[in-house]
Simulated assay, not measured.
Amino acid sequence: MARLFFLLIALILTHSVAMVYFENLSWADALWLSVTTVTTVGYGDISATSWQGRLSTTLCLYILAISLLAQLAAEFFEYRLKKRDDKLRGNWIWSDMNKHLLIINTPAENSDAYLERLIGQMRATPKFAQLPLQILTRNYPKGLPRELSAHSVVHYNGGPEHAKSLAAVNVNQAAFIVILARDGSDPLSDSLTFDILSRIQDIGSSATILVECIADENRQRLQRAGADVVIRPIRAYPELLVRALATPGTEVVLENLFTHDESNLQRVDLDFSHILWKDIITVFMDNDFGIPLAYIDAEGVHSNPAALHSGSGSGIISMTRAGCTIPANTLRAAFARLQTAADATS
């Protein structure tokens, strides 16, 4: 297309020279005549009168230049249509994509629903709300679902096992990279994730990288390969992945709550009335009963209330160490002392 454009300019300039030479026009009038003629506007205010000028106009403009302009217009619109189709189908390379959040792979099952929730949570997180977001996957060769496109997401149709695809999505310029396990229950996915990490390191990237890991024994291996955050695949709660990416380290705390290895959540059933939340925390900490996270009353569960909140309820949920037991009688006695002290000062 560039060659046709320059050929068109050459024909316009050639015709302008002919008009200056044969019709004694000024350069401005000659160029005006050439442009208005080739664009088929044809104001008629200036025209060639000599046979040499008319012949030049016929050959340079009517026969050649106007045909070239039509061909250029057709190729331009064809290029625009192809570009739009390439973007839709994931064949377009977004060369200006940088400081973006890149998602590599899509789940083998229910990928549309999972990605919609995952990306929705990312857009709801201030740290990621304005970041360009791109997906590297082969799952959408005909285009992303409308629900994903609504979040201003683009994708590239390729596989991360090819360095060419990783280069196409600018992994070296990404701010965050999420590598999803292809199969959330198959340990073989860890090997594929390791291969992707190795290729990213070969290209070079300073991004914060989160990976899903199936087998716990592979965690350190993936970390040595370059993963900053390693989390178990929890397809029902993509919110956990987003929290871990936004604040690395929280994934360890959250995952420990699901096991009995380090931290446990315990519920203590006891009635209390009008006690400040900060005083409840103090009682638990002084007795090494963990950290209270929420209290329960007739309206439900209230997590992380304000320090000066005065609460009444029938139970407290606390995060404790593994093996810790919380005797309710000890708490009742401590709360009774708090209540007595409060009554004495009121």
Rank of each mutant, 00 (worst) to 15 (best):
A2S: 10
R3Q: 07
L7E: 11
A10P: 03
L11I: 05
I12N: 03
I12C: 11
A18C: 15
N24Y: 12
S26Q: 05
L31A: 06
L31P: 01
L33M: 13
T37S: 11
T39P: 08
T40L: 12
T57W: 02
L61C: 03
L68Y: 05
Q71V: 14
A73T: 13
R80L: 13
R80T: 06
K83P: 00
D86R: 15
R89T: 15
N91E: 09
W92F: 15
W94G: 00
H100Y: 06
L101M: 11
N105L: 07
T106W: 03
P107N: 09
N110G: 08
G120C: 07
Q121I: 01
Q121P: 00
R123Y: 10
K127A: 07
F128P: 06
F128Q: 03
Q134G: 02
N139R: 15
Y140I: 07
K142Y: 07
G143F: 03
P145D: 04
R146A: 12
R146M: 08
E147A: 14
V153I: 13
V153E: 02
V154Q: 09
N157F: 15
S165W: 02
S185H: 13
P187M: 05
L188T: 12
S191I: 13
L192S: 08
S205C: 05
S206E: 12
S206N: 15
T208P: 02
I209P: 06
I214C: 10
I214N: 13
E217N: 10
N218T: 11
L222Q: 09
A225H: 04
V229P: 06
V229A: 04
I231D: 00
R235P: 00
E239N: 09
P248D: 01
H260F: 09
D269W: 11
H274K: 14
H274R: 14
H274D: 11
I275F: 03
T282L: 12
G290D: 02
Y295V: 10
I296N: 00
E299L: 14
S314E: 03
S314R: 15
I317F: 09
A328R: 13
N329W: 06
T330D: 08
L331D: 01
A333F: 06
A333S: 12
F335W: 02
A336H: 11
Q339R: 15
